[in-house]
C-alpha cells in the first residue's frame, strides 16, 4: 500500500535548485528514512511534504507529491498549505514546544481546528501523551509549563502534539539530533512503536539510526535521489557506488 508518492519533484530556492527530479513512494505504516551528507536536500524534501517552504520567499515547486487515498497533489497551487499541514504532522530538529502548559501544547492542533469540547480535548490529550510515552511522567502536572521538561521529554511532547490531530503522515526532521543518548533510544523505540498507527518519514544524519528504525531508506546526494530500497538491502548490498561509499563512511 502506498500512502504518498513523490513524482518528478524539482524544488528550487531562488536561483538555486535544491532537489532534482526526485521520485519515490512512501509506503503505508512503514518508516521511510532519508539519509545523505549535509546539503543533499533530505530536509528540503521532508519540508516539501507539509509545504513548510511556503513560509519563506523564493520557494518554487515543480512536480507532484500525491497523497493517497484521494490522490490529491499537495504541491498544487490551489491547495492551501494549511490544509496540507492539517493532514501531515511534523516534528522538528530542536524540540520546539510553545511556552505554554503541557496540556495547551498537546491540544493546540485541535483548538486550531475549532474544536472546543473540553471532554474531547482532555481525552485526546491523554491518548496522545500515552502514545508518545510521556503520560506517566507528566499526568500530574499537565498545567505546568512545557519548558520545565527535559529536552527528551520536550521532544516527546512535540510528538504528542503532532499525534493529537491524527496525522496521516508524520514527518520527523532529525528528531534526536539535539538529544542525549538515553533520550535518543527512548524516542527511537517510540518511533518504531508508532508505525502501527501512522506512516512515518524520518530524516536522519545517523546511519545507525536509519538502520535501526526504518523499513525503507532513500539515499540522497547533491539534490539527487541516488538509491531507494528496503533498508536491510541498502545497508548490506547497495547497488550504487556512492551509496556504498557513504554508508561505509568514506565521505559525509
Amino acid at each position: 500500500m502506498v500512502k504518498a508518492e513523490v513524482k518528478n519533484l524539482n524544488f528550487s530556492y531562488g536561483e538555486k535548485q535544491v532537489l532534482k527530479n526526485v521520485s519515490m513512494p512512501i509506503y503505508d505504516n512503514k518508516i521511510t528514512a532519508l539519509i545523505g551528507p549535509s546539503g543533499c536536500g533530505k530536509t528540503t524534501l521532508l519540508r516539501c511534504f507539509n509545504r513548510m517552504h511556503d513560509l519563506y520567499k523564493g520557494a518554487k515547486y515543480d512536480g507532484q507529491i500525491l497523497l493517497h487515498p484521494d490522490e490529491v497533489n499537495i504541491l498544487a497551487r490551489d491547495i492551501d498549505p494549511m490544509e496540507v499541514r492539517m493532514r501531515i504532522g511534523m516534528v522538528f530538529q530542536k524540540p520546539n514546544p510553545f511556552p505554554k502548559s503541557i496540556y495547551e501544547n498537546v491540544v493546540y492542533g485541535l483548538k486550531v481546528r475549532g474544536i472546543k469540547r473540553r471532554s474531547f480535548l482532555q481525552e485526546r490529550c491523554e491518548q496522545s501523551l500515552q502514545a508518545a510515552g510521556l503520560w506517566g511522567e507528566v499526568k500530574d502536572r499537565l498545567n505546568s509549563g512545557a519548558q520545565m521538561l527535559s529536552g527528551g521529554q520536550q521532544q516527546r511532547l512535540c510528538i504528542a502534539r503532532a499525534l493529537a490531530v491524527e496525522p496521516e503522515l508524520l514527518l520527523l526532521d532529525e528528531p534526536t539530533s539535539a538529544l542525549d543518548p538515553i533520550s535518543t533510544s527512548h524516542i527511537e523505540d517510540l518511533i518504531v512503536d508508532l508505525k502501527k498507527t501512522v506512516t512515518i518519514v524520518i530524516v536522519t544524519h545517523n546511519l545507525h539510526q536509519a538502520a535501526r528504525v526504518s523499513d525503507r531508506t532513500a539515499f540522497m546526494y547533491l539534490g539527487d535521489l541516488i538509491e531507494f530500497d528496503e533498508t536491510s538491502k541498502m545497508f548490506t548490498t547497495p547497488s550504487d557506488k556512492r551509496t556504498e561509499n557513504y554508508i561505509t563512511g568514506r565521505f559525509g
Binding site: 494549511m82 504532522g89 486550531v112
Partner: peptide, 13 residues
C-alpha cells in the same frame, strides 16, 4: 522562527 514553524506545522493560519 522554530516557534512559528511549529505552529504552522500544526495547521494554524
Amino acid at each position: 522562527s522554530t516557534i512559528r514553524e511549529a505552529a504552522f506545522a500544526m495547521g494554524a493560519s
